[in-house]
Simulated scan of single mutants.
Amino acid sequence: MEKLDTKTLDAIVKKTITAVEASKNQIYEIYEAARNEVENVKKDVERIKQETINVIFIVDELEKKERRTRLRLMEVSRNFRVNSEDDIKAAYDDAKNIQVELAVARAQEQYLRRQRDEMEIRLRSMKETVAKAEGLTTQVGAVLGYLGDQMGGVVLKIESMQQSQLFGSKIIKAQEEERRRVSREIHDGPAQAMANIVFRAEVCERLIDIDMVRTKKELADLREQVRVCLKETRKIIFDLRPMTLDDLGLIPTVKRFLDMGKERSGIISAVRVLGEERRLDSYVEVGLFRTIQEAINNVEKHAEASVINIVMEFRRDMFIVTIEDNGKGFDTVENVGSESFGLVGMRERITLLNGDLQIKSVKGTGTKITIKVKLQ
C-alpha cells in the first residue's frame, strides 16, 4: 500500500483553509457592496417617490386648470357676438397650452411611476442578494471554524491509521521472526540435546555388560543432559505461553519472569501489590503480561539499569501498573512519532484492552511507564 505523505496532506488542508478564508473575504466584499448598493437604491426610490408625488400634485392642478380653460373656451365660443376675436383666440390659446402642459405632466407621471416600480423590484432583488451573501458569510465562517477545530486532527488521525497499518505488517513480520526464533532455539537446544541423549543411551546399552562404572558415569551425564534439555524446553514454553499465567495468574508469572531476568542480566527487581489481589479476564492478563514483558526486555536491552520496580494496584474498576527503572532514560520529546516497534506494540496492546499507556523519561534519570486498564 502506498504511504500517504502527511506533510503534503497537511499542506493541502492549509491551502484549503486559506482558499475558504479568501472565499469568505470575497463573499463579504460582495455582501458589503450589495448592502451599500441597497442603501443607494433606497435613496433613489425615496427620491423618485417624492418626485412622483410632486408630479401627481402638478397633474391634479393642471387638470383643474384644463377644466376651467375648457369651460372658458366654451363660454367665449357661445357668446362670440359679445366677445372679440382676440378674446376667443386668447381663450383658445390658454386651453391649448394647459392641455400641452397636462399631457407632458401625465407622461412624466407615467415615467416616474414605471421607474419607481422598477426600482422597487430591483431593491427587493438586491435585498435577497444581501440576505444570501450574509447567510453565505455565516456558513463559510462556520465551515472555517469547523476546519480550524477538526481538520488539524485529520492529519493526526491518518498518521495514526498509517501507524496501525504499519504495525499490522510488522506484526506479521514479527510472527514469522518469532517462529524462526523458536525453530532455531528448538533446533539448537532441545533437538540437539535429545539427539545427543539418544547417542549416549546407545553408548550405555553397549557398556552396560562391559564396564558398569563407566556406564554409571554415562547415565549420570545423561541425566544432567536431560535436565538441561528439560530446562531449555520449559523456557521456550514459557516464552510462547507461560503456564503459570493460566494456573496462577498475572502476578506470579511476572515475578517468575523477573527472576529469570535476574539470572540473565543481573538486574535486581521487586514487585509490590496494592489493593485486593484478584484474577482478571484471561485476555486482559495475557495483554498486560506481554506489555510488561516487552517493557522489561527494553530495560535489559537498552536502559543499562540495575534496578526495576513494579507496582501493581487493584482498584474496583481499574488496574494500574507502573514500571520504573534507574537506567539512562531517553528524551520523550525528541522521540515523539519515532517510537520503536516494541513501544508501538505496547501501546497497541493496551489500546485493545481499552486502556492507556504513558511513558515518562528524561536522559540520565531513568524511565517510568504507567499502564491503566479499565475493568468491567
Rank of each mutant, 00 (worst) to 15 (best):
K157I: 01
V76T: 15
M1S: 13
L136I: 08
I98F: 04
I268E: 11
F57N: 14
E61L: 14
L147D: 00
I237M: 11
A91D: 03
I320C: 09
D325M: 07
R214I: 00
G327N: 03
D259F: 05
R179W: 09
T69V: 15
K132V: 11
L250S: 05
K65R: 15
D5T: 08
I172R: 13
I48T: 14
D10T: 07
K14D: 07
A270W: 01
N354P: 04
K14Y: 03
Q376P: 10
F199T: 08
L62T: 09
Q192M: 12
S183A: 14
K374G: 13
L343N: 01
H187Q: 13
V311I: 14
L357N: 04
T351K: 15
P242K: 04
G266A: 04
V55I: 15
E218S: 04
K235C: 01
A34Q: 08
E178M: 12
D117A: 12
K363T: 15
R180G: 05
A33T: 08
T351R: 15
R181V: 06
E66R: 15
Q110T: 06
K173P: 02
A33K: 09
L144R: 01
A174Y: 11
I88T: 01
K262W: 07
F167C: 07
A105Q: 02
V140F: 05
T138Y: 05
E276D: 06
Q376M: 03
Y31N: 09
E334I: 03
M74V: 14
E339Q: 04
R206W: 00
A195F: 06
T332Q: 01
Q108M: 04
I98D: 05
R272P: 00
G135F: 06
E32L: 09
D93G: 02
K89H: 07
R200L: 12
Y28R: 04
K173V: 13
A133E: 08
R347E: 10
E334C: 00
K7M: 09
V299C: 11
L375K: 03
R106Y: 01
N196E: 12
V228D: 10
I237D: 13
